[in-house]
């Protein structure tokens, strides 16, 4: 998994500064996630990494570091 590529894709999709995506940053707060944009995040992650994040698992993913770890395990 190329973290920089993933972060760039997320930043572009969510129209945020890629520098806001740090390992310790909250996924929910940084991306202002709700039920609808969660599906967008799942779609971006799948397109870049091939990993399908389950929506119910996202509630256990607090930071971007945990998201990367989840994707690694998915691969």
């Amino acid at each position: 998994m190329n973290i920089e590529q993933l972060n760039a894709a997320i930043a572009e999709e969510f129209e945020i500064d890629v520098n806001d995506i740090t390992p310790d940053a909250s996924v929910k707060d940084t991306l202002e996630l709700d039920s609808l944009s969660l599906l967008d995040l799942i779609s971006v992650v799948h397109d870049v990494t091939g990993c399908t994040v389950k929506g119910t698992d996202v509630s256990h993913i607090a930071t971007f570091a945990q998201l990367y770890e989840y994707i690694e395990q998915c691969s």
């Binding site: 039920s35 609808l36 969660l38 599906l39 389950k54 929506g55 119910t56 509630s59």
Partner: peptide, 15 residues
Amino acid sequence: AYRLQYQGEEALANN
């Protein structure tokens, strides 16, 4: 309105 925490991920498409 379907929400993840109440109806689950599969139901979100109903939105």
